[in-house]
């Protein structure tokens, strides 16, 4: 564990708490893409098939939290606050993402086993899971400030993982190409968002696309 990784994980936790706060406070999931949340649930379930393999208490607790919270968010969006979700805004075709990620995982993996291919699939899927949310944002052209804080924390989490990998490469000679490439793509997808967040939200303005 190093500073970047711990901060990244805490940002990831924070992003989920901010999302839960947004839904509970406004009693609405408007502006949130159900498809992105569904993809995150798929990511966590397929990645943490090794849940029973002991690495550390920290590792196990975080895995349980990520799986449980992602499913709870689906429950909030699909059942509790169903009326506030507008599917006509959430039109990104996730079938293509799922198909492409599965195909890539079958071809580019470390070991061709069931668990390993699903782990690789989850890494690729996480990289693009935010696309329905960003697509929704670009369609509506604006977002509630708390929603942008959620997205910022989520993007920062991945950005910090990049620093963690650089750190681990130099201190432990840790190499993980699959995770690196997917993580770099995932962070790059946030670049436009980061720019507008910095320009507008951090200066007290509403998030609006130019």
């Amino acid at each position: 564990m190093n500073f970047f990784r711990l901060t990244a994980d805490l940002m990831h936790l924070l992003s989920i708490f901010v999302l839960l706060l947004k839904i509970q406070k406004t009693r609405s999931c408007s502006g949130i893409s159900f498809k992105t949340q569904l993809l995150y649930a798929v990511v966590f379930v397929t990645r943490y098939l090794d849940l029973l393999k002991w690495i550390s208490l920290y590792n196990t607790l975080m895995k349980i939290f990520f799986i449980a919270s992602s499913i709870y968010i689906l429950y909030l969006m699909k059942i509790k606050f169903r009326a506030t979700y507008d599917p006509s805004q959430d039109t990104f075709r996730i079938e293509f993402l799922l198909g492409a990620c599965l195909l890539l995982a079958l071809v580019f993996n470390y070991t061709f086993t069931f668990i390993e291919v699903l782990w690789t699939f989850s890494i690729y899927l996480e990289a693009v899971a935010i696309l329905p949310q960003l697509f929704m944002l670009s369609r509506t052209g604006e977002a509630e400030t708390i929603t942008t804080h959620y997205l910022f924390a989520l993007g920062a989490y991945r950005g910090l993982y990049l620093l963690n990998w650089i750190w681990r490469f130099y201190t432990e000679h840790h190499i993980d190409w699959i995770v690196w490439v997917a993580g770099a793509i995932q962070t790059a997808l946030y670049s436009d968002f980061f720019y507008i967040y910095y320009k507008k939200v951090l200066h007290g303005q509403k998030f609006e696309l130019p």
């Binding site: 990784r5 393999k53 550390s56 590792n59 895995k63 990520f66 782990w119 190499i175």
Partner: peptide
């Protein structure tokens, strides 16, 4: 090249 990818990261 050492392909060390123990799944210790989340």
């Amino acid at each position: 090249e050492q392909l060390k990818h123990e799944k210790d990261e989340l």
